[in-house]
């Protein structure tokens, strides 16, 4: 199945103020793959995701979803198949209740109200915030907002799920829940995160970005165990792979 493939060729992006955020990126993500995109703050991860979603358009190069180029014309079609969770949930929630917010996407696709309700309740259930459905989003805590933002994308049943730091600001239980959720999601996933343990657990493949360029692209199990490489990109090995600080065996990444 090639229709959920995401392909990026020689992608460049410069912000209007002249800041070069993405510099000659190329990669291919196949159907059903789950890919972690990691890199230091300001490496260009969020910018890359916005380019994939067609929110920003590349200054050079191209993005293809399936076999379709992302252009203004093909956007409505492409967006129906991709769902993106923003880094800042406040950008995503603007209706008066959590329920209406989660229902916003399905309603835009003109589903009938029964189906909308079923999807909303299912999405809320999946992220475990069914009890918040009648609350106003601006009155929620940071983590609750994030769960609501994830639900608002899940309710659209996307084929490709794109998430910008899905586990930031979540408590350990909610983080687990989101991770389990992502694991059960069989379609293509693209996740950026500083939570390298999560990337290690969820993504078979990792792309490391530094200053807008790809440093390595390969198996998570190899990249995330390579302390030297991670260190040069301003990262650290996942805690799960580091030696136990209490047993006292030398920590690998402090050469």
């Amino acid at each position: 199945m090639s229709h959920h493939k995401v392909e990026v060729k020689n992608l460049h992006y410069t912000y209007p103020d002249g800041h070069k955020a993405v510099n000659d990126l190329s990669f291919q993500i196949h159907h059903g793959e789950s890919v972690g995109i990691i890199g230091a703050n300001g490496a260009g991860k969020s910018t890359l995701l916005l380019l994939l979603m067609g929110v920003l358009f590349p200054s050079q190069g191209e993005v293809c979803v399936g076999d379709v180029h992302v252009t203004k014309k093909t956007l409505p079609n492409i967006r129906q198949r991709m769902g993106m969770v923003f880094q800042d949930p406040d950008d995503q929630l603007f209706m008066t209740t959590v329920y209406d917010d989660v229902a916003f996407g399905p309603r835009n696709y003109k589903l009938d109200e029964k189906e909308v309700e079923q999807r909303v309740l299912q999405a809320l259930e999946m992220v475990g915030i069914l009890h918040l459905k009648d609350r106003a989003p601006f009155k929620l805590s940071g983590g609750e907002k994030r769960s609501a933002a994830i639900a608002s994308v899940l309710s659209m049943h996307p084929d490709i799920l794109i998430m910008d730091e899905p586990t930031a600001a979540l408590d350990p239980k909610s983080r687990r829940r989101v991770m389990r959720l992502l694991k059960s999601f069989e379609h293509t996933k693209i996740i950026t995160s500083h939570d390298l343990d999560m990337v290690f657990e969820l993504c078979d493949r990792t792309i490391v970005i530094n200053k807008g360029e790809i440093v390595v692209d390969g198996l998570s199990s190899e990249i995330l165990a390579n302390a030297e490489l991670l260190d040069t990109c301003g990262l650290e090995m996942p805690l799960g792979l580091q030696n136990c600080p209490i047993c006292g065996i030398t920590v690998k990444n402090e050469k």
Partner: peptide, 8 residues
């Protein structure tokens, strides 16, 4: 942008 991404 977020609204557009959700089919607005």
């Amino acid at each position: 942008q977020a609204m557009c991404l959700r089919g607005f």
